[in-house]
Simulated scan of single mutants.
Amino acid sequence: MKNCEILQSLPKEGLKPRQFLRHCFGIASLSPPELLEEETDSQYRRKCISVLCAVFDVQRPTVRKWGSDLNFDGIPNYCKFALAYIHAAEIVPKELKSILQGEYSAPLVDAQTFLEKILLYGLTEQQVLQTVSHANFRATCVKTLTQVLHIGTKSVQDWGQDMSFRKMPTIHKHTLGYALAAISKSSKAWDKQAA
C-alpha cells in the first residue's frame, strides 16, 4: 500500500472558483483596479460559467445555482478540490481555447481504474492477490476515495460493494481524472512508472 504516499502530492486545500478563474484567464497577478476592469467586462461571467461547465461536464443551470456573482459561493466543497487538482495539473489555461469553443472533454476515470493505479500499480501478481484479499482492502479503497474526493465515507460506501463503485456520480469520475493528472504533473517519476 506504499503507493498511497503518492496521494500526498495532491493539493491539501480546495481552490475558490474566483481564484481558479483568475488563473484560467491569466489575470490573477493584476492589480485590484485592473482585476475590477477585467471582471466587470460584460462577457467575463459568461466565460466563467462556460469554463466551470466544461471542467465539471455540467449544464449551465447547475453552475448558475452556485451563485449569481463571480464567487460561486454555492459550489460544493468537493468541486473546490477538483479545481485545485485542475490548477495543479496546469490543464487550464492551456485548454482555455478548446473550453471556450466547446471542444473540451473533461477526463473521466472510474473508481476501479483510479484505485488500481494508486493501490496496486507496480505490485507483482502475488502481491496484488495478497493486497486485494486482505480484510482491510475495501476499507482502504473507501478511505482513498474519501480522501481524494473530499466527501463522506457513507457516500462512497453507498456506491457499491466492490472496487468498481459502479454508482459513483460522473462528476466524481472527473475529479479522479484531474487528481491523476495532478499527481502525474507533480511526480515525474510516478508518471514514467504509470505510463
Rank of each mutant, 00 (worst) to 15 (best):
K2Y: 06
C4N: 13
L10V: 03
P11I: 01
P11L: 01
K12T: 03
G14Q: 05
F20M: 01
F20K: 00
F20N: 02
L21R: 01
H23Y: 09
G26V: 11
A28L: 02
S31K: 14
S31G: 11
D41I: 08
D41P: 11
Q43W: 05
Q43C: 07
Y44G: 08
Y44L: 12
K47H: 00
I49C: 04
I49P: 01
C53P: 09
V55A: 05
V58R: 10
V63C: 11
R64G: 01
D69L: 14
D69W: 15
F72D: 03
G74R: 14
N77Y: 14
N77I: 13
C79S: 10
A82K: 05
L83A: 05
A84E: 02
I91N: 02
L96Y: 04
L96T: 09
L96C: 08
Q101W: 02
G102Q: 04
L108S: 14
A111F: 10
T113R: 01
T113I: 05
L115I: 03
E116Y: 03
K117T: 06
K117H: 06
I118C: 09
G122E: 10
L123H: 04
Q126R: 03
L129I: 13
L129N: 15
T131V: 03
H134G: 01
H134D: 06
F137K: 01
C141T: 04
K143E: 15
T153K: 07
G160E: 10
Q161I: 04
M163L: 04
R166M: 08
K167M: 11
P169G: 14
K173T: 12
K173R: 15
H174V: 07
T175R: 09
L176W: 09
A179V: 09
S184V: 00
S187H: 03
K188H: 11
K188Q: 13
A189G: 00
W190L: 09
D191W: 00
